[in-house]
């Protein structure tokens, strides 16, 4: 298979996840990602080395999302204004050089971290992120109070966050160790 197909396979899902930070509908997000790949096909940038291509793809997805937010502000006017402001705050944060986990890690690492969660948290992540159930539906399904669902979701996420941070830290330590060995 040619380089382009492999590139598509490697980054498609991650770019989709990235645009879904801002774009609620999956079909809309798919369109955004398709357009990015058309652009990279036409301008030939996909032939560059992987790091450059990756940087290009993620900055393209960021710009497309910013444009989408602008469009949303025009269309929706005052409706849900605060939630758009929250999204904008997030977009500005990533525009200033901070990188999202979706950009840094590959998806397998994220999934591995989810797998290593205690069962009670794994379950809530599975129901909300895989099955797509809302808090209310999860509460009904597990027969627990809504407040408990909310607490578990937050705890699951912050445990994941710690795991991901530790992993990065571990990798950094490893690199230092290697560096010293070389000396």
């Amino acid at each position: 298979m040619n380089d382009f197909d492999n590139l598509f396979r490697k980054y498609h899902k991650r770019l989709l996840l990235y645009s879904m930070k801002y774009v609620e509908s999956e079909s809309e997000a798919l369109d955004i990602v398709q357009n990015i790949f058309v652009a990279i096909w036409e301008n030939g940038k996909y032939k560059q080395n992987d790091e450059l291509v990756k940087a290009y793809l993620f900055s393209a997805v960021k710009n497309s999302c910013l444009n989408y937010l602008k469009h949303l502000k025009v269309v929706k006017k005052f409706e849900n204004e605060i939630s758009i402001q929250l999204l904008e705050m997030e977009a500005v944060h990533y525009q200033s050089g901070e990188r999202s986990l979706i950009e840094q890690e590959n998806l397998k690492q994220i999934n591995d971290s989810i797998d290593s969660l205690p069962d009670i948290y794994k379950e809530i992540i599975f129901l909300s992120r895989f099955e797509g159930l809302k808090n209310q539906e999860i509460a009904k399904k597990l027969n627990i109070p809504l407040r408990t669902v909310e607490t578990r979701i937050f705890r699951a996420l912050s445990t994941l966050k710690e795991k991901m941070l530790k992993k990065t830290f571990f990798i950094l330590l490893n690199m230092n160790f290697l560096g010293e060995n070389v000396k």
Binding site: H12, K21, S100, L101, I125
Partner: peptide
Amino acid sequence: ISIKDIWDASKTPKENTEEQLSIFYRN
């Protein structure tokens, strides 16, 4: 921002990459 980032990263979209690739070529 970091909690929302974890939340976004742990989603499992229903997309099928191969299907998207063929849509790409079709377009």
